[in-house]
Nucleic acid binder design. Sequence first.
DNA 1: ACGATGATGAAC
DNA 2: TTCATCATCGTA
Length: 176
Amino acid sequence: MQGRVITKKFFNRQTCVVAENLIGKYLVRRRGRKIIAAMITEVEAYDGVKDRASHAHKGRTERNKVMFGPAGFWYVYFVYGMHWMLNVVTGDRGYPAAVLIRGVQGVSGPGRVTKFFHINGSFSEKPSAKASGLWIEDRGAAVEKSAIKKITRIGVAYAGPVWSKKKYRFLYDNKS
DNA sequence: ACGATGATGAAC
DNA sequence: TTCATCATCGTA
C-alpha cells in the first residue's frame, strides 16, 4: 500500500489548518526494507511566539531553532527524561510553529508514537520526505470534518488561562 | 496518585 | 555550575 507523499506546500500554511488536515494522513517510517505506517488520529498545534504553550514563546534556542525555519522539517525533542516528541514544522520561515503528532491508529500518546515508529532526536531538523526515512502520505482515507473534535491541549497548564484553553488539539473520533 | 529520569534554559 | 521545569508514561 502506498499513497501520495505530502510535501512542503501542505505544511506551509497556518499551523491549525495543517493540524486539522493531518488527521487521516499516514505517518510512514522506513527502516531498511521494513515499512511502518499508521493513520494519524490526534495532533496539537503550536502557533508562534505569542503562544505561551509553545517552546518558541521564549524565543529561539538551540533546541527549538528548527521551528523558526521553513515548513516540512521534523522537530523532535526529549522530555521528562524518557520520551521523544515528534513535531513537524509549519508556516513561513521566521514564524515559529509546529504540529505535535500525539497519536496514530492503535497508538495513543506522543511518547508511544515515537517508540512505535523508532523515532529519536536524530530526526530533528531533517525533512519530512522519503530520503529521511520518515514522511507523511495521503492514502485517500475519507475523514469528515465533523468527525474531528477540536479540544484543549494536554500538559500546557503553565501557558496560563488564555493559551492553555485554546482548542488547538485535533482528535479523530469515528464513533460519533 | 506518583515516581522515573535527564536534557534544557535561565539564573547566579 | 546549579536548579527548576518539563508538549509523558507505567505502575499502583
